[in-house]
Measured scan of single mutants.
Amino acid sequence: AVSDRLIGRKSVVMEAISPQNSGLVKVDGETWRATSGTVLDVGEEVSVKAIEGVKLVVEKLE
């Protein structure tokens, strides 16, 4: 599936994300709604860990 190619990809937070609120990330020039178990600020680099419905699950790059 097209979405499977996103797992493991680097992306950049475009709208802040917290455990309570989804935000936005940009992956390969496309904007996606995303969630995370931690707070992520605009501009942080993250990695796509999973896809749940139409949202990406991301975490901060170490």
Score class of each variant (00 low, 15 high):
1 A>T: 13
3 S>I: 13
3 S>R: 12
4 D>P: 10
4 D>T: 12
4 D>L: 09
5 R>S: 10
6 L>W: 04
8 G>D: 04
10 K>N: 08
10 K>T: 12
10 K>I: 14
11 S>W: 00
11 S>Y: 03
11 S>C: 15
12 V>T: 09
12 V>G: 02
13 V>R: 00
14 M>A: 07
15 E>W: 00
15 E>M: 09
16 A>R: 15
16 A>P: 10
17 I>W: 00
18 S>K: 06
18 S>R: 06
19 P>W: 00
20 Q>C: 14
20 Q>W: 11
20 Q>A: 11
21 N>M: 13
21 N>C: 15
22 S>I: 13
22 S>N: 10
23 G>I: 01
23 G>S: 01
24 L>R: 09
25 V>F: 00
25 V>C: 06
26 K>R: 12
26 K>T: 11
26 K>E: 13
26 K>C: 15
27 V>C: 09
28 D>Q: 05
28 D>W: 05
28 D>I: 03
29 G>F: 04
29 G>T: 06
29 G>H: 06
30 E>S: 06
30 E>M: 08
30 E>I: 09
30 E>D: 09
30 E>N: 07
31 T>L: 15
32 W>S: 08
32 W>I: 10
33 R>D: 14
33 R>L: 15
34 A>P: 08
34 A>C: 08
36 S>K: 00
36 S>C: 07
37 G>D: 15
37 G>A: 14
38 T>I: 09
39 V>G: 07
39 V>C: 14
39 V>A: 12
39 V>D: 11
40 L>Q: 05
41 D>L: 13
41 D>T: 11
41 D>P: 09
41 D>S: 12
42 V>A: 07
43 G>K: 02
44 E>I: 08
44 E>K: 04
45 E>C: 15
46 V>P: 02
47 S>V: 15
47 S>D: 06
47 S>F: 15
47 S>P: 01
48 V>L: 01
49 K>V: 15
49 K>A: 09
49 K>W: 01
50 A>V: 04
50 A>F: 07
50 A>N: 07
51 I>K: 05
52 E>Y: 08
52 E>L: 11
52 E>R: 10
53 G>L: 03
53 G>R: 03
53 G>I: 03
54 V>T: 14
54 V>Y: 11
55 K>C: 15
55 K>R: 14
56 L>R: 02
56 L>Q: 03
57 V>Q: 06
59 E>M: 06
60 K>A: 08
60 K>G: 06
60 K>C: 04
61 L>K: 07
61 L>M: 11
61 L>E: 09
62 E>V: 13
62 E>Q: 12
62 E>W: 09
62 E>C: 12
